[in-house]
Design a protein around this nucleic acid. Structure first.
Lengths: 241, 241
DNA sequence: GCATATTTGTCCGTATGTATA
DNA sequence: CTATACATACGGACAAATATG
């Protein structure tokens, strides 16, 4: 679902013929969706930091797509809460407020705790959680703190999958993408991501032995402390409340 | 947030001058959003039943908006899962599968049970829940079963608000809107909605006395039986699995 | 199976209104 | 207050896909 090529979406060539081949290979996604993929990557990787204004003209001519197509892509990302749309002013990379951070952790606590509470069948989600822990350990060895943060998000995405609902999965995908915006505003990502590795391992252990309530207790404590830490540092970083 | 006028969005008048006044009053929403509001109402009220194809030409000329604007509105509703988009074929009012119904109730159980479990401060949500119960009782007296269904959805929306998260509220708004699509496929709405009234009243009673776990138990039982009943009847109604 | 008509996907140019320097 | 830059929404154009006869 993600475009491999981070560069231009298409050449300035007449019509959309240049992408016909790709379009067949990529499973016939629309141009707008591909543009949205490119922008989403740019945003989550921090190339477009929160607050950046995305001018239709600049982005559109830069990517070689029309304004209508671009507006469609903007709308997709606005619905994912990665962009905010101010009427007659344009779109901006979202700047989350402290109240957003609090709300995001409220959602996480509600969903994630419920997901681990009753684990009837530990299917392949546990496998993915294990993979995410390994991914995090490898990132730590590389001193790749952004990668560690990504691994942490993967872990909690896999944890959420225990609930067995595609809609809950999608909700959490959006929540974690928003949290990425928070991380980019913060300095020193190591301090925030490194401690989570041990706690993830601990939670995974509880789940593996079928101790749902135990996992829930650990998870709740982790989420509370993470939120507190994050809100504290975030409030200092950003001017508005 | 909802347009009061169910008819045409704007006249065929040149440009958008006709709505300038309204736009100021209505809080400056875009045309696409207003079109989406109209279509959403049409869909949730059953005027466009599931499976209906929404042709760009017909809807566009009928509402007096351009194709671009209409496509923007379509995209909004597609993201709300009220429409499905088939490439080169157009948009259709979504027809949910049984697996969707199961997933929707899985979400409801997870979210709603968590919302009532720990009720620290019973603020104005309880007031809205009470209002929804009254709304349902009045609809029942009028033998207005569609209104009873709406009141039931209001009740559970207010119940969800106990969690105190705008993102969870939005999730549940979407979930309940999808459920409306299910209801429209079913015959005899009375059988499905009437029994819920008593159960809602019972749940509200538990919440009012601060008995979270008790409310959760009642709620879980209600959701399980409702899902079972609904899936059973829905599978008979629709051909596909 | 084939040819035609309809519909959608994508894009452009432009008129008008809006916000900011 | 004026000027500039920008967003909104429209209509039109053409290719590609689908539906229809």
């Amino acid at each position: 679902m993600r475009t491999a090529e981070p560069g231009k979406v298409r050449q300035q060539s007449p019509q959309g013929q240049a992408l016909e081949a790709d379009r067949a290979l990529l499973g016939r996604t629309s141009t707008a969706e591909r543009v949205a993929d490119v922008l989403r990557t740019r945003i989550t990787e921090g190339f477009f930091p929160p607050g950046t204004r995305l001018a239709e003209d600049a982005i559109g001519s830069g990517l070689g797509v029309s304004r209508n197509t671009l507006r469609e892509a903007f709308q997709l990302l606005t619905h994912e809460r990665l962009l905010t749309h101010q009427l007659n002013r344009g779109v901006f990379v979202r700047v989350l407020r402290v109240s957003d951070v609090i709300d995001l952790y409220r959602v996480r606590k509600l969903v994630e705790c419920a997901a681990v509470r009753d684990i009837d069948s530990p299917p392949q989600s546990v496998q993915e959680m294990t993979a995410a822990v390994v991914e995090g350990e490898q990132a730590k060895e590389r001193l790749d703190w952004q990668g560690l943060g990504t691994a942490n998000l993967h872990f909690h995405q896999a944890l959420t999958a225990l609930a067995g609902s595609s809609r809950v999965d999608e909700l959490m995908r959006g929540v974690l993408a928003e949290l990425r915006l928070v991380f980019h505003v913060m300095a020193d990502p190591r301090r925030f991501h490194e401690p989570y590795l041990a706690s993830n391992r601990e939670i995974l252990g509880r789940i593996e032995i079928g101790d749902g309530p135990g996992a829930e207790r650990l998870l709740a404590a982790y989420l509370d402390s993470a939120r507190e830490q994050l809100v504290d540092a975030y409030a200092r970083q950003t001017p508005d409340g």
